[in-house]
Amino acid sequence: MRRISKRPLELLDATQAALHLLLSGDADLWRIVGVSLSVTLRAMLIAMPLGISVGYLLASARFPGRRPLIVVTQGLLASPTVVVGLILYLLLSRQGVFGQLHLLFTQTAMVIGQVLIALPALIAFSLSAIQGADPRARETAVALGASVPRIAWTMLVEVRFALMVAVCNAFGRVISEIGCSLMVGGNIAGVTRNMPTAIALETSKGDFAQGIALGIVLLVVALSINSAFAFFQGESRR
């Protein structure tokens, strides 16, 4: 890869080189994008059903420990990803409880980390989405003879736009997080190097072109997610 001087005046050159990398279909670059998307999509596929179900249960059922669970979930929303990474690292490292699984520095470890980061957001936002639904919606489903699973499905469909807001929020958190991916993934080229870890690494090495190129991709992904977020938020308030 072409080395580019660190002098700010040549940032323009770096940006040009970045665009060239993007448009020429540079294999290393797109592999990094692929790792990011693959890990995040897998994490979301696991976290979505789990988080939305827990959110639904917290919103609909009354059981002992419900209040503390909600408070803990909302607290976890603020947990730094690097701390999630640290805890997961300790669990997965050779001396850790799950050391035998040899998962440290694999994509699986990154997926687990992102699931843990996505869950509090998914739970908290789907909880508030379902609590915000019209109480007559549930009563109507009940009065028309729906079974418990059908009532649940009906409620989720009724608040679908608010749930999409929850999903966008969680996706935005995990696609751009660096702390956990760096700690449990290890930033191994071609395996666990994703966009945020690569940007940090390339920039610290002085290779701005790749950093800028990945930054552009990450920005486009984040902006699309946020546009979708804004759209769904508008729809859910209609």
Binding site: D134, R136, L144, G145, R150, V157, E158, R160
Partner: peptide
């Protein structure tokens, strides 16, 4: 519940379609 149907003063319609709303109880059965 299968024998008794209650209708709210301001009925709630599901965000689907008119036909799907009418079909709701039939699907549930």
């Amino acid at each position: 519940r299968r024998q008794i149907i209650y209708v709210h003063q301001h009925p709630y319609l599901f965000h689907t379609s008119v036909a799907e709303n009418i079909a709701y109880g039939l699907r549930a059965r």
